[in-house]
Design a protein around this nucleic acid. Structure first.
Length: 132
RNA sequence: GCUCCGGGCGCCGGUCGCCGGCGGGCCGCGAAAGCGGGUCCGCCGGAGGAAAGUCCGGACUCCGCAGGGCAGGGCGCCCGCGCCGGGAGGUGCGGGAUUCCGGCGGCAAACGCCGGGAAAGGAAAGUGCCACAGAAACCAGACCGCCACGGGGCCGCAAGGUCCCGCGGCAAGGGUGAAACGGCGGUGCAAGAGACCACCGUGCGGAGGCCGAGAGGUUCCGCGCAAGGCAAACCCCGCCCGGAGCAAGGCCAAAUAGGGACCCGAAACGGAGCGGCCCGUUCCGUCCGCCGCAAGGCGGGGCGGGUCCGGGUUGGCCGCUCAGACAAAUGACCGGGCCGUCCCGCGAGGGACGGCGACAGAAUCCGGCUUAUUCGCGCGGAGUCCCG
RNA sequence: GCCCCCAUCGUCUAGAGGCCCAGGACGGCAGGUUCUCAUCCUGUUAACACCGGUUCGAAUCCGGUUGGGGGUG
């Protein structure tokens, strides 16, 4: 496919890296199911939990407890987790359907951005491919 | 110039992404009207002075609302203006009154001037506390001390001096203390004392005098010098306040329940009004007495105290906002501008790095208080140093 | 979010305006007892979260910070 005459790049890009409300986990019950259903997968900046259920759709939930910092720092941690998931969702195994919960750790506040992306990629590589 | 304090102002444009609203296209559901936090496009809006702490107050909502009282909480000088509020009231600023502290003048008290502070009604309504020290700590009191008288010893020819004891007078001086019963000077006296006098201080009463808008100030007269402090001790006086809180609360759907057991006590062992508590009282039922053939009426009583167990509590919408979420929205990059540091250059200037800064993110809303904190510019005030 | 509560040696606590440079228990350290250890005895180590105010005097009363804890759909 050729690029459009006006040169706009989004015409050739596959699905745009958006992350709207419907693509996120929003209920306390969903988070509790994720904690109960999977072992934590730890990286330096974050901890990952998975939730496989009939309604799973590779959605994201983010968590930052009070141990991370004050309200400004918690908001920043959750913002970075959402951003790393939004821009790097293609690193997940193809056909991946489970919902993902990312828990922030305090190190995410001072880590350089490439380090956060590296953590997420490292976690994504260890995920098993979904059964066919 | 430096430091501190209090107000004020502060980046621009673009790309991608996020939240909300409005409009439109496609898609889904529906017979349709229409609905949709499905998706795409356009336009508009999108954190603070503290959004914080939750220390006060209000709006709003539900519970409650014959009446009275108790308990509990808040506030406490005056005037003007501003803000919040229906009001009561709260609060900021300015001015003033009172009082306290510091400095200067003054021998000192008082007083005057300058500066700063006050959670600022009442300590002659009552209760309580005031350790240690000190004789005595709140209405009395006498350790050292001062003085008179009586007796005795010693010295002396004597006048008298001195020491001890006794009985009295006094509270000036010493000493203690955070605080000791008006200050200072004089008269007076055996010694002393507001005992008396002058000047002052202070309290009460009066003239309800004079000045002031008022708090209050001030003059004169009379009486007085007791009546120390603590009310951020109980308390008294005056004014105000019912309780809980948007997770309030309302609607829809789903689920569960339509509660139970024991003890004391009793003529009777019911239910509701009723809020933290009490008095009192109302209605229905019940018990007792009287009237009545009866229906019913009148009067009265009582409905008390304590211990324990069980069931349900998950979603959506509204409340909700010109920010308006409900696992909670502001970031990344590019260009320009500004600031700081460094490097190159004689210079105009050029380049590199860092930053646009701190504290920190709305969660029902509004006002006040408190706390955290700053790169630059500008305003006002205070302090300090240098030069002229 | 809203509404409450608490803070004393390393730990658990006493204290209610002066008797408290804060007492007790467990612990730590030193010494004694014992052949050694334990027990026991003696001594010692150590605290009022912080900043102001009221008061002659504050762990205590009153404000304000800080740090913990709880309730509530």
């Amino acid at each position: 496919m050729l690029a459009s005459p006006d040169g706009r790049a989004d015409c050739v890009r596959p699905p745009r890296p958006t992350l709207r409300r419907a693509q996120r986990l929003r209920h306390d019950r969903q988070f509790r199911e994720a904690y109960a259903a999977s072992a934590p997968r730890r990286a330096r900046c974050m901890v990952m939990f998975l939730r496989e259920a009939p309604d799973s759709a590779a959605r994201l939930g983010v968590v930052a407890s009070r141990k991370v910092g004050n309200a400004v720092e918690r908001a920043r941690a959750k913002r970075r987790l959402r951003e790393v998931f939004r821009l790097n969702r293609h690193l997940l195994p193809p056909g991946f359907r489970a919902d993902v919960v990312l828990v922030a750790r305090r190190a995410i506040l001072d880590a350089p951005w490439p380090r956060v992306v590296g953590d997420f990629a490292w976690l994504a590589r260890q995920l098993p491919a979904p059964p066919p």
